[in-house]
Design a protein around this nucleic acid. Sequence first.
RNA 1: CGGGGCGUGGCUCAGCCUGGUAGAGCGCAGCGUUCGGGACGCUGAGGCCGGCGGUUCAAAUCCGCCCGCCCCGACCA
Length: 583
Amino acid sequence: MRRSTLLCETLRDDPAEADVPNHILLVRGCFIRQLASGIYSLLPLGTRVAAKIEQVLREEMDAIGGQELTMPVVQPAEIWQQSGRWYDIGDDLLRLKDRAEHDLVLAMTHEEVITSLIGYNVHSYRQLPVMLYQIQTKFRDEPRPRAGAIRLREFTMKDAYSAHISQEDLDRYYPEVYQAYFNIFRRCGLDVISVDSDVGMMGGTMAHEFMSLTPVGEDTLVLCDACGLSANRQIATFRKDVIDGGEPQPLAEVATPDTKTIAELADLLDIPESSTAKAAFFVGDAGLIFAVVRGDMEVNETKLTNATKSTALRPATEAELHEAGIVPGYASPLGVSGVQVVVDDLVAQSTNLVAGANKAGYHLYNVNHGRDYEADVVVDIASAYDGAPCPDCGGPVRLERAIEVGNIFKLGTKYAAALKAQYRDEAGDQHPMVMGCYGIGVERLMAAIVEASHDERGMIWPVAVAPFQVYLVVLNQNDESVMQAAEQLYADLGAAGITVLFDDRNESPGVKFTDADLLGMPLRLTVSRRTLKNESVELKLRTDKEFTLVPLAEAVAHAQAQIGALQASIDARVVAEEFAVGG
RNA sequence: CGGGGCGUGGCUCAGCCUGGUAGAGCGCAGCGUUCGGGACGCUGAGGCCGGCGGUUCAAAUCCGCCCGCCCCGACCA
């Protein structure tokens, strides 16, 4: 490809709307272009990267028995009603009507279609297991798209679905997908770790997320250096040490004017925050939720969502609290009614905590669960914090930010039962299939790669996903012999099967080198009057500071060797990964 | 949806407070000179100042409403 004809106008300045590296660089390099919030065009360079990623996806999915297919993006509401997600999912699901006023959705994922499809086409245990996948557009009407290509509304997803005769067979297969996922990310040059994750709106029994560690990430992970534990903070547990509060003492009211926060309360009463109980209020499917954790901890909304069997939570408004007779800042689980009280297990085991009196300006000493109030649910709803004791080994955990680039779920029979994907066993009896689903976001993966692999000058593409392997610069174009040599090299590289972006523009050397760095092809070749004086070509890796001169006649061979070495170093990282529950 | 910020040639921004001829740099087009790390000179094109309404003799500028975009919070590939 000639740079002079490529649709690629690089930007000198950082775009105003971008403030994270992947977004800045992808826009400056003309890989993506925003159309609306969370909706982007992939320009030629971005499309080439996506195609390279998709090639890796296809190879790895095919290697574990996947068959590619293509399903519709626009889908009738009926199948979503059958699965229940029409009702469970809120505004993230974009709904529309056709001319006949039929309800339609833009698919945010394809469990419904694939399940009905498999149910239609698979009837016998002899046809199972089956693994199907597609690489196709998804639409999620995200409340807040973010960070360039990391959080989009319209995006491309490799979504795969497997169907099995039994949980055992799914359990056997699941680690194969787990391994394939590691292979995919490593081949794309991205380091990831796997973590246990929440099953969320997908339902199911087990899930892993594949995480690329970066401060730009939206997820928080809980990691233990001592034993290797890793989990999404949404579900991470930690060891809770009960502080001995002594035998339950009589309740005692204490005046605490103007102490609306736990910090103020602890300060005023001269007690540690861990001697208090903290209340937080949410609204779930069943109405107002009164959540209680120890004062030094935070409520984990994912855990609380699961504990209350809600599909979604939102913080309660002041008005809703007043209506329920709750005094914000002085709220107490004592004497409240008509709300669901969820108490963290640690609070339930603690004695003589200080809690609100549900009366403005007053708190209570010696509040004890079981004696003074009853919870509807007692379960872990506290969020793991930096330095919390690891649930497995007791060592301190640390929190890290990460991008979720992929996930795998054991769905179980939820969709198969709802959408009647059944098979007959050897005895002729019908059973719902046991399913798994497996997703990877293509644009997000591209963004995560840039996030993980760039410097102050620009992107540094791992060779397997680079839009071109070589950036060929020619200088002194007015010198016919130089131009001729460059043209010949361009042709020879192409003939050798190397993908080349040939910067044949009439631009100054500075412009070309700067663009070469920004666009980030792994290998740069430069032909100029100077190099030709020695019958040579300059060769430089994007990751290196220095360049080397190689004989013009051997330039193609050297380029091939360099690309081969880059590829080999990536291949060396594709190794067997131990499948571990809990890590 | 709650909170904060921003909308002025393709891009980055100034001008707005204190109303009166719409600006700079980059980019783009032409000519010439340059040619190893975002070169230089000359010439030129390009703007309903996000939209609607209001105030005023006069609005990019003041006021109101709306729309869009970004950031922080709750969700997900």
